[in-house]
């Protein structure tokens, strides 16, 4: 049986392969308690975390990526 940590690490690497960085990060987070002392794991985890943050920031800064939200209130 693979441990939950191993499964999550595997899923994270597969997500990296598909360039699905948010999914990779979420799986790294799940695996983190199992690989706390593994420097290689920590490097990949932290790099992915940073990349996700950068992408979030870019999404916020880029005018094209802005999403206009309009709230509609119904009366009665």
């Amino acid at each position: 049986m693979l441990s939950l940590g191993e499964k999550a690490y595997c899923a994270a690497l597969l997500a990296l392969k598909k360039k699905e960085y948010l999914q990779a990060f979420e799986n790294f987070e799940k695996a983190a308690p199992y690989f706390a002392n593994n420097k290689e794991f920590t490097l990949y985890h932290d790099t992915t975390k940073l990349l996700v943050e950068v992408k979030r920031k870019l999404g916020t800064l880029s005018e094209d990526d802005k999403i206009e939200i309009e709230e509609i209130f119904t009366h009665g």
Binding site: L2, L13, L14, L16, K17, K19, Y44, L50, L51, V54
Partner: peptide, 28 residues
Amino acid sequence: SLESLLETFLDRVVFLKEKKLNVLDGIN
């Protein structure tokens, strides 16, 4: 620029671990 650098690094990680990753995926 940072985004591109990080993506390149992670691509390289995946490339280096490709064989191991395939085995691990099969076992999984």
